[in-house]
């Protein structure tokens, strides 16, 4: 469904992507995880036509993004990191314009807008100006807009950035239901729990390179099941254990303050790169 081969992007002297290759299957929810500036948004920009790759190839549902750009764009919907709705227009007008850009007939647009506003629970807001909506509502409208033309692939670039936890969870359940309808989802995030909760597979990106790619479960099991944070000499060190007994044994044989918890994807990233995701 999505295929990248040795994708590279250079901005002047800075190499933002250094030969990224991956494959995302149909109906999969794939998450791209990494700190700011690791190349997550650059990848999405290249795949959706907002940026041009310096070298390498990519295909969306079999269409090459460079040679068959228009067909490739028809396959995907994009929710950008920035809210890019027309603030002066209403929710309905924003959705109509998107439908027109994707050559949808008027009656199809009207039907789809009704469906989508019901889906995001905003049927009463069709005539509301976008500027009157809250941040969470704007995000939901952006998701609805990206789904207007029924894309096979949905790109979500940090879709919950800056939202409060309750609204974030609401967006997660919306994303899950979109995946259930058969849409392939490519999600970038720097929220660990978001990737853990949503993703079928996760790729860790660090300085434009994929440093790990697998299911969240496999990635976490590779370093252990339990993480023990030990606070000593003003610093913190984390140890990983296969089972809880091993961790308890460590606590009884060492002096210091300990905190025992389940391993998460942040631990995976730290063990791979020595850095935190955020």
């Amino acid at each position: 469904m999505i295929r990248l081969e040795n994708l590279r992007k250079r901005y002047g002297k800075v190499e933002a992507l250094r030969g990224v290759s991956l494959h995302v299957g149909e109906g999969e929810l794939f998450s791209y995880l990494g700190p700011n500036g690791s190349g997550k948004t650059t990848t999405i920009k290249i795949l959706t036509g907002l940026a041009v790759a310096s070298s390498g190839d990519a295909w969306l549902h079999g269409f090459h993004i460079g040679k068959e750009g228009v067909q490739a764009k028809r396959q995907c919907g994009l929710v950008t990191q920035n809210i890019n709705l027309d603030n002066e227009l209403s929710v309905g007008e924003n959705l109509h314009l998107h439908g027109k850009l994707f050559q949808m007939a008027r009656k199809d647009r009207v039907r789809r807008i009704d469906e989508l506003l019901e889906y995001i629970e905003m049927t009463d807001r069709v005539g509301s100006p976008v500027k009157s909506l809250s941040g969470g509502m704007k995000r939901r409208v952006m998701i609805a807009r990206a789904l207007m033309h029924s894309p096979r692939i949905l790109f979500l670039d940090e879709p919950t950035a800056g939202l409060d936890p309750a609204i974030r969870r609401r967006i997660w359940s919306l994303v899950k239901s979109i995946q259930k309808s058969g849409t392939t989802i490519f999600l970038t995030t720097h929220y660990i729990e978001e990737a853990e909760f949503l993703a079928d597979r996760v790729a860790f990106l660090e300085k434009g390179e994929i440093v790990a790619l697998d299911t969240p479960q496999n990635l976490m099991e590779a370093i252990g099941a339990w993480a023990l944070d030990e606070v000593a000499d003003g610093g913190m060190q984390t140890f990983y254990f296969r089972d809880r007994e091993e961790a308890n044994k460590h606590i009884t044989t060492h002096a210091g303050g300990f905190s025992l918890r389940r391993v998460n994807l942040e631990d995976v990233f730290i063990s791979l790169t020595g850095k935190k995701v955020i």
């Binding site: 959706t48 036509g49 907002l50 750009g69 228009v70 067909q71 764009k73 028809r74 995907c76 994009l78 950008t80 920035n82 890019n84 998107h98 850009l101 994707f102 050559q103």
Partner: peptide, 8 residues
């Protein structure tokens, strides 16, 4: 960005 991502 919306225009750039559209198939036009």
């Amino acid at each position: 960005e919306e225009f750039q991502a559209a198939p036009i």
